[in-house]
Design a protein around this nucleic acid. Structure first.
Length: 421
RNA sequence: GUGGAUAUGGCGAAGCGGUUAACGCACCGGAUUGUGGCUCCGGCACGCAUGGGUUCGAUCCCCAUUAUCCACCCCA
């Protein structure tokens, strides 16, 4: 179907894009304040980057990637997320050689082949930040604070920050073992996916939603119990930073980032009023990722948030964004002879920095006024008729309906002054 | 990939075997000839997702397909 967009994609019409621009502007402003600069990476990358960077046991890699072969026989994949690309760019462009930390943000479309539902699309948009270099818990708290500040300024309520620590390569193997030992007696009673996870990725069993599996997890050891001294100290410090920033959170020992290169802090921001897909933000620390992708070992921490879900949240909580201003002035024509004059006037007004519209539909004067009204024009200029013989035009204030006759040579200056521009 | 619901004009929606396919919003035009927002009048679906079938006859019944929505898995 030629007039049907692909499944799971969206057209954002002018009404929508105005809102997107507002949100994007807010995010850019917050990033500026936090010292994060924009990174733009390709929409597609070598498939191998995601296999490695996202992890080949993840659902994303196993069933959700848009992978294709280009004419040169390369296997490429539309990015399903942007962290792997950011790490690749960090290493490839040798950002490690400059001043650390390297604070980056990105926003743009991501692609995952999934069944669409509320808050889930095949092409969706993420904003995210990555902070490379610092191992300090202050960096963990910094990125969380950045996300939190965004939601605070939007005025969203009922947000719940979930926090956990998944340890590091020193303490995780022991925990992994302890969890397996704990679950082994019930191994055959776990759901099929969890049975598979048992060997490959036992931590993921923790966040299985199957009630049966959750039952067997009662009393299971948590990652927090198993943290080594260093990880414990790190996690405590993150929490005290959050306290200092007055950011409320909830410890959630079931929250995991199952892959080996994810370390220490894991967090999610949840909002239940937007449907089943309630995570509006997810992130954590990945001290092993840069090395995994071929760079030298570099700590990192970051998060991503889903733009579409932000809009769902705004709608659910009935939060209206400021409206875009309408036209400063609409130039209406009385007769055909005035058309060129009107066009010229509109051009002059625009050159002076005003937003000016005029009639391109060759409509009646009445219809032109109606249009001016629909464009929320502050003023309408009426060009033509006997006024033109006096080198003047009619200026109508659309709010008060007051009309005056003005010299055509002074009208631009008059309007600029009235509109204070 | 699995399950459920839905599919009538630009949008919302009535009709549910035989109707000129309501109505509201939006849009367009007009209301004694140079003017908007209110009001009034008029216009706007040869067709009811697509393809089959049942029937004298189908938007309305049956089947398939596709799409949308919601949920599962999982994630932003």
């Amino acid at each position: 179907m030629l007039t049907k967009r692909p499944r799971g994609t969206n057209d954002f019409l002018p009404e929508d894009t105005a809102k997107w621009q507002y949100i994007e502007k807010l995010l850019r402003e917050i990033c500026r304040q936090f010292g994060y600069a924009e990174l733009r990476t390709p929409i597609f990358e070598e498939t191998a980057l995601f296999l490695r960077g996202v992890g080949d046991t993840t659902d994303i890699v196993q069933k959700e990637m848009y992978t294709f072969e280009d004419t040169g026989g390369r296997s490429l994949t539309l990015r399903p997320e942007n962290t792997a690309s950011a790490v690749r760019a960090y290493v490839e462009n040798k950002l490690f050689a400059g001043q650390q930390p390297v604070r980056l943000f990105y926003m743009g479309p991501m692609f995952r082949y999934e069944r669409p539902q509320a808050g889930r699309f095949r092409q969706f948009h993420q904003f995210g930040v990555e902070c490379f270099g610092p191992a300090s818990p202050a960096a963990d708290a910094e990125v969380i604070a950045l996300a939190w500040e965004f939601y605070r300024r939007l005025g969203l309520k009922n947000l719940e920050l979930n926090l956990n620590s998944v340890g590091c390569p020193n303490c995780r193997p022991a925990y992994r073992q302890a969890l397996q030992d704990f679950l082994r007696p019930h191994l055959l009673e776990l759901c099929p996916t969890c049975q598979e996870r048992f060997e490959k990725n036992p931590l993921r069993i923790l966040d299985c939603k199957n009630p049966q599996c959750q039952q067997f997890l009662q009393g299971a050891p948590t990652t927090l119990d198993a943290l080594c001294d260093e990880c414990h100290e790190h996690f405590e410090a993150v929490q005290s930073y959050l306290h200092a920033a007055a950011i409320p959170y909830r410890l959630n020992t079931k929250l995991v980032r199952g892959l080996d290169y994810y370390t220490n802090t894991a967090f999610e921001i949840l909002l239940s009023d937007i449907g089943a897909q309630s995570a509006v933000c997810g992130g954590g620390r990945y001290n092993g990722l840069v090395e995994e992708l071929g760079g030298k070992a570099t700590p990192g921490v970051g998060f991503a948030l889903g733009m579409e879900r932000v809009f769902s949240a705004l709608t659910a909580q009935k939060l209206a964004l400021p409206e875009q201003p309408g036209l400063d002035v609409f130039v209406a024509v009385l007769d055909k002879q005035a058309q060129t004059m009107a066009f010229q006037l509109a051009c002059n007004l625009r050159q002076s920095g005003l937003a000016a519209g005029y009639d391109t539909m060759e409509r009646s004067l009445k219809a032109q006024f109606k249009y001016a009204d629909s464009q929320r024009a502050a003023y309408t200029l009426l060009v033509g008729g006997e006024e033109l013989t006096r080198d003047s035009v009619v200026l109508r204030d659309m709010q008060s309906s007051e009309q005056t006759e003005q010299s055509i040579n002074e009208i631009v200056a008059i309007l600029k002054e009235k509109l204070a521009k």
